[in-house]
């Protein structure tokens, strides 16, 4: 393999990793604070994709479509937290699991009702079309834009979690909820906010994915699987772990896809089984 080709695959792999990070960050965030594994995350991603593309067309503005749809997906999850999750806190976590599982039906079927069951192709806006030359090989501008968005989200999350008071409460809550409560902080409001943020991230991820893969009513379930594999490989509850696992998944998929194209679909499972058999709690998971 020439070094040019290698660099090209590496860049594709990394952009794939960034997409996976965007996909799984919302899930990881919600899980780390609320300890709810939100199985409807994939469906929220799908809603982000459909709604985002719809709004881009309706408002004929790319950035407005992205922001409004992401905010609205966030609101959906915040409402779900406020009206549904709250009824189940402190009980058997099995019911939270089943509840989010039931939401998959509602969200997925609603997408089919609103936009139909057919696969929809998405036209890229003109500024995302075409390629640039990097190291003598063409590289899609869309992928550069994904890098940019990923960096932006990463920086935003870093700033929020490490430099603000709210972030301090969230990280403290991840460590010890009872202590945060005992200090007189209404952590339920923080829960709702974190759910909003998780939905917001799902919305952004769905929007990006739409330009990458187009729209189909199966994308929610397919992405849920990717998300779950990534967070398990990274170690449940570990935000950093999920980010690392996302990049590893991107690398594995791009390189396995290049050498053994038949196995590309299975690449994430292969990685998962290798990691889990070596370190069953995931890369950065607590034992």
């Amino acid at each position: 393999m020439t070094s040019q080709l290698f660099v090209n695959i590496l860049l594709s792999a990394l952009s794939l990793g960034v997409i996976y990070f965007l996909l799984s960050s919302g899930f990881a965030l919600v899980f780390s604070l609320l300890r709810v594994s939100n199985f409807s995350h994939g469906s929220l991603i799908m809603w982000g994709a459909y709604l985002g593309i719809y709004l881009v067309k309706a408002l004929s503005s790319f950035s407005l479509g992205l922001i409004i749809s992401a905010v609205m997906i966030g609101i959906i999850l915040a409402l779900v937290e406020f009206f549904l999750f709250r009824r189940l806190y402190g009980g058997n976590p099995l019911f939270e699991l089943l509840l989010t599982f039931g939401l998959i039906y509602i969200l997925d079927e609603a997408v089919k009702l609103v936009w139909g069951a057919a696969i929809i192709t998405v036209d890229k806006p003109s500024f995302l079309q075409g390629t640039v030359m990097i190291y003598g090989e063409p590289f899609a501008i869309l992928r550069l834009y994904i890098f940019g968005l990923g960096a932006f989200v990463c920086a935003g999350l870093y700033f929020l979690l490490n430099k603000t008071k709210l972030g301090l409460i969230i990280t403290a809550g991840i460590e010890n909820k009872e202590m945060v409560r005992a200090l007189g902080i209404n952590i339920n409001r923080v829960f709702t906010f974190v759910c909003w943020l998780g939905g917001f991230l799902a919305g952004i991820a769905g929007f990006v994915l739409a330009y990458f893969n187009g729209l189909s009513p199966e994308m929610g379930t397919n992405q849920l699987l990717n998300v779950l594999v990534i967070v398990v490989v990274g170690g449940l509850g570990s935000f950093m772990g999920a980010a690392i696992a996302a990049v590893i998944m991107g690398l594995a998929e791009a390189f396995i896809g290049f050498y053994l194209p038949e196995l590309a679909v299975l690449s994430s499972f292969i990685v998962m089984f290798i990691v889990l058999s070596i370190k069953p709690s995931g890369l950065l998971g607590e034992e």
Binding site: S37, P93, L97, L225, L228, V229, V231, V232, L236, V265, L266, F269, M272, L276, S277, P280, S281
Partner: peptide, 23 residues
């Protein structure tokens, strides 16, 4: 492989494994 940990691991791994078998 999975039952030693929180049962959520079992849930997720079975989901992934099911898709794996289907593929």
């Amino acid at each position: 492989l999975t039952l030693r940990f929180a049962t959520i691991y079992f849930t997720i791994v079975t989901l992934a494994l099911g898709q794996f078998c289907y593929f």
